[in-house]
Design a protein around this nucleic acid. Structure first.
Lengths: 355, 355
DNA sequence: TTGTAGGCGTTATCAG
DNA sequence: CTGATAACGCCTACAA
């Protein structure tokens, strides 16, 4: 009833502009104009065309427009495989807010996994260099490189999220990892804690450096020795958060001088650590205080409710998408601008003064 | 160094096949062949072409190929906005496994939010009818419809995930909601429980019907009266899982005859319920046993560790993507086939015999 | 084995 | 205001 594509065509790929033109008794170009710039065509003709289009169920072929226009309306987001697991809803939340913002501006979002194989890097580079996408968002990742081409050389507008790549002149939307961690540490110091366990993944990566730096800052300000920070983890990726937290608890058990407070760099590490030390007989927060990073909604329902540095995921996604759209629209690219969206420390029952 | 695009062209959209041809001293078509069907061109010519291509950093224009071929290699996944929140990692996990499978077969994954506004429905229909995508995965959603076009009429290959749409002749990859819930209920009945609180979202939707049905099945088999199932929630979407669980705890507090076991239809509902009833002074599992649905990895680290029906998210994603690729490759579409990937009941400390 | 020519569906330019 | 025509970049008969 709505669709009319010839005689059941089997493969008939839907009506074309030409079909609409024929039905309306005008030239193809007139149809095109009626659709793109309605006020540049006579009202009556326009009406006729619109009616024909509706009657045929015509939908413009997006690929043909893209080819003609020399640009697509696809945005690619590069996601590290390691962030797909765990309880923190960083990925879905950010995808949702980005996608909503992009859709509102007429763009579509394509996902590109950045796994640890070279195929995925090549895929991404093909997309970037093959004019398949109009812009890219790169989420907490390094720049793909397949040996002969590097993402750094792309002519695409790119915005980095979470990781600060403004030094490479990619505009970046980040949070204040360092200051937030410093604030959390100061909070614990204020409660009387002096000895900390810092649990991390992938020691030395951007987030670890920033966050650890924040802890050190706070210690220095309070004139506490750096040696009071015991490190745990550091060898695995964020994807392994639960394992990192569990192992940190084992590590904790072996320590002669126990830290009284824990700073975990992801929710997964925090909850698995809490679960394991509880089984060892420690109480939270009486024996151990703990604050984590990410602050997914589930933290409020942990036992005890988990204090956390809450990353403004939605806001970051929105900001990044808007920045990218703006870049595209203004036909720019470089500019090492840096948007910082602050994280908030949410204190819940997992912290208290040491006993 | 790698890229050579004329004299810094400003807008020069990268080298074309024509550039490669010129550099190699052959015709464009020969370049095309050398890239697509290498053995149909002289080894020496091929070499020359490959070298030129590499030297220029040539990457084929994906849009042009798609137009020429009459088909894109984009797959769209339709995701309901309501599933982007909460602790269960259904969305990221399934995106990851789908994307990996698709990438291996040369396809790319595009996200389409299905929010509650008509714009998003129109967007999706434009994609489906505008030849922009080659196939679609529809994740636990109803079929988009903008009033004049319906997704049901699309000529695209479509696979439904989680929701059984095989009746509408869309191949579907689902889990055994009903049987799994039945098994969970039987487990609790076996422990001696006779009175249940069933917490749900969106009463009457596909998942609710299936899951509730499973509870009823188990009750009937055990000759327990249906009245022993107390319902909570049912008015909000899955997105509101934490709120649903919290409210269910309030509801629980008002009940004269307390259920001794709880069946929650998402992890979010379960953890927020546990958190709230604990504050009311109840103990789990001594006073209340609880089993949830989804079984995200974090369940193992709850307090107490949460028993759950674990959905095989990865496997479902992989199966759906493979099914879709197969459909595309074999040029088919309809076929109400239904792949069931069973969920597993994982028992942890949140259940025990009633006291 | 290689080259020539035409077309995929749309849009922009230029006449009429 | 409308119509013919030429691209967009690639691929594939078909011809050489």
């Amino acid at each position: 009833m709505k669709k009319n594509k010839a005689i059941s065509g089997e493969e008939g790929n839907g009506p074309l502009m030409a079909d609409v033109a024929r039905l309306a008794g005008v030239a193809i170009s007139t149809v095109s104009r009626a659709l793109a710039t309605p006020d540049r065509v006579n009202a009556k003709t326009r009406e006729k065309i619109m009616r024909s289009a509706r009657q045929l169920g015509y939908t413009p072929n997006a690929i043909a427009s893209s080819l003609r226009a020399g640009k697509s309306n696809l945005i690619m987001i590069i996601l590290p495989g390691s962030l797909f697991y765990g309880m923190s809803q960083v990925i879905p939340q950010i995808l949702h807010s980005i996608n909503t913002t992009l859709a509102r501006n007429g763009y579509h979002l394509m996902i590109a996994n950045l796994d640890r194989d070279e195929t995925s890097e090549r895929h991404i580079l093909n997309l970037a260099f093959g004019s398949a996408v109009r812009g890219a968002l790169i989420f907490s990742s390094d720049l793909p490189d397949d040996g002969s081409r590097s993402f750094a050389d792309t002519a695409l507008p790119v915005v980095s999220i979470l990781r600060d790549l403004s030094g490479l002149s990619f505009p970046s939307v980040v949070t204040n990892d360092r200051a937030a961690m410093r604030e959390a540490t100061e909070k614990l110091i204020g409660l009387g804690h002096q000895r900390f366990l810092y649990i991390t993944a992938e020691q030395g990566n951007y987030h670890d450096r920033e966050r650890y730096g924040g802890v050190v800052d706070a210690m220095e300000t309070a004139s506490l020795p750096k040696e009071n920070i015991v490190l745990s983890g550091g060898a695995l990726s964020y994807q392994e958060g639960f394992r990192i937290g569990t192992e940190a608890a084992d590590h904790f058990a072996t320590l002669a001088e126990k830290p009284t407070a824990v700073l975990a760099t992801s929710d997964d590490m925090a909850v698995s650590f809490m679960s394991a030390v509880r089984q060892q007989g420690w109480r939270i927060p009486e024996d151990i205080s703990i604050i984590s990073f990410d602050g997914s909604p589930a933290c409020a329902f942990c036992f005890p409710p988990l204090s956390a540095i809450e990353q403004p995921v939605e806001a970051m996604g929105r900001a990044a998408a808007e920045l990218l759209v703006d870049l595209i629209e203004r036909n720019e690219r470089a500019s090492g601008q840096r948007v910082v969206i602050p994280s908030r420390l949410i204190c819940r029952e997992s912290i208290a003064a040491p006993s």
